[in-house]
Amino acid sequence: MFEARLASTLTLKRIVDALREILNQSTLDCSDTGIQMQAMDNSHVSLVSLCLRKEYFEKYKCNRNISLGLDLKSLTKVLKCANGDDAVTIKAADKADKVELSFESAGKERTADYELRLLNLDQEHLAIPETEYNCVVHMPATEFARICRDMATFSESVVIACSKEGIKFSASGEMGAANIKLSETTKGEVSIQVDEPVALSFAGRYLSTFTRATPLAEKVKIGLAPDVPLLVEYPIEDYGYIRYYLAPKVDD
């Protein structure tokens, strides 16, 4: 038996919004410690990993590990039926072929229950190696979203170069070139830790997809190391995260 209750549907809506542009379907792995999910996009260039610890939920019960194969489009449709400030309870019986979502209005005067058919997804699990990133940058999530949007105007590829002087995003194409550089701020909105400078090239459209998670977090963490996938991490309060990994582009 699995049961998890969140005080607000809004965060769940935001989490699904952050996933659904990369994935159509995905399996939530629920255990007594919380919920995890990881999947690559169809082209195997990016990976998204979600972790929500049980402390994130108002109520959490999971007697036995259970995997819930979900169609994210269908889940979005159900979430559209709810108000952001409704409480939501997700329930599934052991070996169930459906999941139940119940919404309760803030004043408790309205309840609505929906059933979603579960999918039997054959999903492979990947081992994500622990990586020591040579450069770790924290910046406001809205700033990162803005930079990705502005870079997309100029080119498909974005070069991210990080050194002690700052982090620089560059794009150049037929129209011209764009360079945006952020330095560390004394107030701590932007922090930059660098062991060794790194410069890597990435497909901008994936970066833009990651910024779908912007409403979830104030700050985004970016991890860079030579010849390994970029890490873009959005914390979910103190109880979890959405991490995106993106493989670099290399010169022929």
Binding site: V45, H125, S201, P229, K249, D252
Partner: peptide
């Protein structure tokens, strides 16, 4: 020209 690397070479199937 640049080539897009795939993630499969970094993250191994468990």
């Amino acid at each position: 020209a640049q080539t897009q690397v795939r993630l499969d070479s970094f993250f191994k199937t468990m």
